[in-house]
Amino acid sequence: MTAPRTLTARALLLDMDSTIVNSEAVVERCWRRWAAEQGMDAEEVLKVVHGRQGWATMAALLPDRPMEQNHEDNRRMLAQETADTDGVVPVPGAPAFMAALDGVPHALVTSASIPLADARMGAAGLAMPAVRITAESVSASKPDPEGFLKGAAELGFAPEDCLVFEDSEAGIRAGQAAGMRVVGVGERAAAFAPTALVTDLTLVRVEVLADDAGVRLHIDG
């Protein structure tokens, strides 16, 4: 657990996969299939797939591969992932956490496409935030900060007033590059120096502040 244990923010920016939605089973199935097609070690591939858009992961793994092929594989994988919701569930504590944000400025900032985000949030039984930044919204994948900066701008807040929830290296680096504080969620986040760290969202209590002053988050360890 990293300090501080109490954080205030005017707005929250939430990653989706492995942060509020547990889609690890689907991600593993799809990327194992892709790794087999490329003749690659699936375990090595799975170490780097989290947080980025699929084409960006493919480019990192196969730097000499034509980008057109990466985008084509990414389109195919997005279709597979969207159709496969078996095992997609909320991260522990996510339903109560999201319900507590009713009326609090917040946005989804995900590397998923709109159809994939709809499918996974629906499968997990979580309401889609009114503001969402998806793969279609940005020109660069995480760890580029573009998505988080766009989310803050759409909510009408400066980066320093926003707090990011993320699980992956790419996502945490993106939040940090945007000049935002980051709450890391899950074991994967521990290695990347988030502002605070929780194993899941059952350890976060949301206190809504008066006069539209945002939220105070009480983080237990």
Score class of each variant (00 low, 15 high):
Met1Asp: 11
Leu7Cys: 13
Ala9Pro: 06
Ala11Glu: 01
Leu12Gln: 15
Asp17Ser: 00
Ser18Lys: 10
Thr19Asp: 03
Val21Ile: 06
Ser23Asp: 12
Ser23Ala: 11
Ala25Gln: 13
Val26Ala: 07
Val27Asn: 13
Trp31Pro: 08
Trp31Ile: 10
Arg32Leu: 05
Ala35Phe: 07
Ala35Glu: 13
Glu37Trp: 10
Glu37Gln: 12
Gly39Lys: 05
Glu44Tyr: 03
Lys47Leu: 09
Val49Pro: 00
His50Ile: 04
Arg52Pro: 00
Arg52Cys: 05
Gln53Phe: 03
Ala56Met: 07
Thr57Lys: 06
Ala59Glu: 15
Leu61Ala: 11
Leu61Thr: 06
Pro63Tyr: 05
Pro63Trp: 06
Glu72Lys: 13
Asn74Asp: 14
Arg75Asn: 09
Arg75Asp: 10
Gln80Gly: 09
Glu81Gln: 07
Thr82Glu: 08
Asp84Trp: 00
Asp84Ala: 07
Gly87Ser: 01
Ala94Glu: 05
Pro95Ser: 12
Ala96His: 11
Met98Asn: 03
Leu101Ala: 04
Val104Gly: 09
Pro105Thr: 01
Leu108Glu: 05
Leu108Ser: 03
Thr110Phe: 05
Ala112Pro: 09
Pro115Thr: 04
Leu116Phe: 03
Ala119Cys: 01
Met121Lys: 10
Gly122Glu: 02
Leu126Ala: 04
Ala130Tyr: 03
Ala130Asn: 02
Val131Ser: 08
Ile133Leu: 12
Ile133Phe: 10
Ala140Pro: 00
Lys142Ile: 03
Lys142Met: 00
Phe148Trp: 07
Lys150Gln: 14
Lys150Met: 14
Ala153Gln: 03
Glu154Cys: 11
Leu155Gly: 11
Gly156Pro: 00
Phe157Thr: 03
Pro159Trp: 05
Glu160Tyr: 02
Glu160Ile: 08
Leu163Pro: 09
Leu163Lys: 01
Gly175Tyr: 09
Gly179Trp: 07
Val182Phe: 02
Val182Cys: 00
Val183Gln: 08
Val183Met: 02
Val183Ile: 12
Val185Leu: 00
Gly186Glu: 01
Glu187Ala: 15
Arg188Asp: 12
Ala191Asp: 14
Ala191His: 07
Pro194Lys: 03
Val198Pro: 10
Leu201Ile: 03
Thr202His: 06
Leu203Ala: 15
Leu203Tyr: 14
Val204Thr: 08
Arg205Asn: 09
Arg205His: 13
Val206Leu: 00
Val206Gln: 08
Val208Gly: 06
Ala213Trp: 02
Ala213Glu: 13
Val215Trp: 15
His218Ile: 15
Gly221Met: 12
